[in-house]
Amino acid sequence: MNWTLNLVLLTFLVGTAFAMIMLKDLLAAAVVFSAYSLIMAIMWSQLRAPDLALTEAAVGAGVTTVLFVITIFRTVRKENR
C-alpha cells in the first residue's frame, strides 16, 4: 500500500465529508457526495478490494447520487439553517 497516496486519499475523504456537512445548498452537497464516493472507490482499490471499488463506483457515485438529486429536485434545494 502506497503510504503517501493513502494519506492524500484520507485527507480528501475528511475534506469532502466536512464540505458535505457544511454546505447549505443540498444540490452542491449531493455532488460532493459523488466525489466522496469516488475517492472511497479509489481507497478500496488501494486496500486490494476490486469488487468493492466496482460496487462503490457504480452504486455510491452513480445510483445514490442520482437518488439524492431526484429527491432534491422534487422537494427543496436549500437548507434553512
Partner: peptide, 16 residues
C-alpha cells in the same frame, strides 16, 4: 473481480 451485485449495479447505473 466482479459478480452479480457489481454487474447489477453497473446495469442499473447505465439505465439510469
Amino acid at each position: 473481480a466482479g459478480g452479480g451485485f457489481q454487474g447489477g449495479a453497473v446495469i442499473g447505473a447505465s439505465i439510469i
